[in-house]
Structure formats: structure tokens, C-alpha cells
Simulated scan of single mutants.
Amino acid sequence: MSVRLGDLAQSQKMTTSLLALRTQVNDTQATISSGKKSSNLAGYGTSASTILALRIQNTRTSSYVEENTIVQSRLETMDSAMQTIGDVASQLQTLIAGRRSAGVDNAATFDKSVDLMLQSVQAALNTQYDGGYVFAGSRTDAAPVAFGNPASNGAGDTSYYQGDGKLASVKADDQTTITYGITADNPAFAALIAALSAAKAANASGSDIELADASAQSEAAVSNIADLRAGSGVTAGSLETINDTLQMNKLYFSNLSSDLEDTDISVAMAKVSADSVALQAAYSAMSKINSLSLTDYMR
């Protein structure tokens, strides 16, 4: 059977159209399966630069949130330790009151109780978070507190401290850097340690005046440590507020990116359906030109 040149040209043209339509159907089906309009940025055309910028911003925002959350956990760890130290200050007041009222009857157990309190304070000030000592300044690899005998030589004595005075900071967002933390040589801690040492000395001398003075020091320590906790709480609250804003920004960026990147499934399915009908019609037309059935053509 002879084939006219016109028929051959028409057949080639239809074959090219069929392949293009088949590719179009496959591409649309791929966007439905992946949920994305394209598998690469180039496929988004003029929206590509906007999508890239949104991805970068979202990644940076996620990094801020993650780091802020870590700092919040450190502050929570520090607050728990300070609560323990504040409790010791309150317990010292109670212990001294009992010593003053009972006289020599509880003098023998007094020193043991104070020693246990000093151990508790030392353990709290040597608290770690994720392997680092939180009250050591920047020297987080070594315990910052080691008591001698006596633990303190009086108010203002911080010879027990082995850390440094450099506080940590976190870049909480694009515009905000927050310095945070407390070192174990803080005057509030030093005053409590001095009060504990003074209480032992007063117990040894039996001086009620010295016991009263140690009690007054411990009372001041309760207030000062509460102030430290409040200040640390303000910092934690600031980070929480910033993180709330960052999380809202992340959602906003994600929604913008989704609008640009994500496949509209209903539209895509309608397009696949329409293109499939057109493809079937094209196959039928092609089979008539070539005097072949659609099944034969597809083999």
C-alpha cells in the first residue's frame, strides 16, 4: 500500500502532538503524587526567587526557635537549682531559730545540718545542662564551685568560685541579642555561703548575737535569691514571647510558600481528566490515519 506524503506529514505531526500530550499528562500526575507543582525551582518560573527567599527565611527562623528553646531549657535548669538554694536559705533560718531556742541541746547536730546545706548549695551551683556547668560563665567544662574550710571567710568572699565572669548570649531573632545566665560568684550566692559559715562559727562560740546575725544574713539571702530567679524569669519570658512571634512568622512563610509551591489537587485532577480525554481522541484519530486500532498503535 502506498503512503501519500501528505498523510505521512500528518502522521508525524500527530505523533509529536501525542507525545507532548502524553508528557503533559504524566507531568500533571507527578504533581498530584508529590503535592508540588515542580520537582525543582526552575519549574516555578518567575516565582522561583520568591520561593527560595521564603525557604531561606523559614530555615533561619527555625534556627532561632531551636536555639531559643535550648536557652529556655538552660534557664529552667538554673531556676530549679536556684529554688534549691533558696530553700536552703529558708532552712538555715529555721535551723538557727531552733538553735537559739534550744541552746546547747542541739548544738552537736547543728554543724552536721549546716554541712549538709553547704553540700546542697555546692551541688546546685555545680548543676549541669547538656554536659555544661550552667553557673560557670564561659568555663562550662569544669565545676565552678569547690568549698574550702571554712566555705567562706565572710561576706563578699568568692574564693570558692572557679569559673569566669563571661555570660552567655543568644541571637534570639534578626534584631535581638539577649545576654543571659548567672555565675556562682553572684553576691546573693556568696552571701548565703557566708551566712552558712557564720552560722557554724556562731554555733561553735555559742554567741546568740552571732547566731542572730547569721539568721539576718540568711533572711537577706532568701530575698536576694528570689530576685535572681525573678530576673531570670523575665529573660525566659522574653524568649518565649520572641519564640511565639517566630512561630507565627514560620506559619506565615510556610503558607506563602505553600501557595506558590503546592499542587491544587482538584485543578490538577480536572486537568488530567481533560488531557486524558484529549489524548484518547488523538489516539483514535491517529489509528484511523494509519488504519490501525489504538491497541495496535500502543504495541
Rank of each mutant, 00 (worst) to 15 (best):
M1Y: 13
A9Y: 00
Q10D: 02
Q12H: 01
K13Y: 03
L19G: 13
A30Y: 10
T31P: 11
T31L: 10
I32Y: 08
S38T: 03
S38D: 06
N40C: 03
N40K: 12
Y44V: 02
L52W: 02
A53Q: 14
R55P: 13
R55G: 05
R55A: 12
N58D: 08
N58A: 15
Y64A: 07
E66T: 15
E67S: 13
N68G: 11
T69R: 05
E76W: 03
Q83S: 12
G86K: 07
A89I: 01
A89F: 04
L92V: 05
L95H: 15
I96M: 02
A97W: 02
A97R: 10
G98Y: 10
G98I: 07
A102R: 02
G103E: 06
V104S: 15
D111Q: 15
K112E: 11
Q122W: 07
L125V: 10
Q128V: 05
G132N: 08
G137T: 10
G137A: 01
R139W: 00
D141I: 01
A143L: 08
D157Y: 05
T158A: 13
D173Y: 06
D174N: 07
I178N: 00
G181I: 03
A184D: 08
F189N: 14
A191G: 15
A198T: 04
A199N: 11
A204L: 01
S205R: 01
S207T: 06
S207I: 04
D208S: 14
A214E: 13
Q217E: 14
A221D: 10
I225W: 13
A226D: 14
A226Y: 09
A226R: 04
A226I: 02
R229I: 02
R229Q: 15
G231R: 05
G237E: 03
S238R: 15
S238H: 14
T241N: 15
N243L: 01
N249E: 12
L256W: 14
S257H: 15
S258P: 09
S266A: 15
V267M: 11
M269W: 12
M269H: 11
S276E: 10
S276C: 06
V277H: 02
L279N: 11
L279R: 07
L279E: 04
A281I: 00
M286E: 06
S287R: 01
S287N: 10
I289C: 01
L292P: 00
D296N: 14
D296G: 04
D296Y: 08
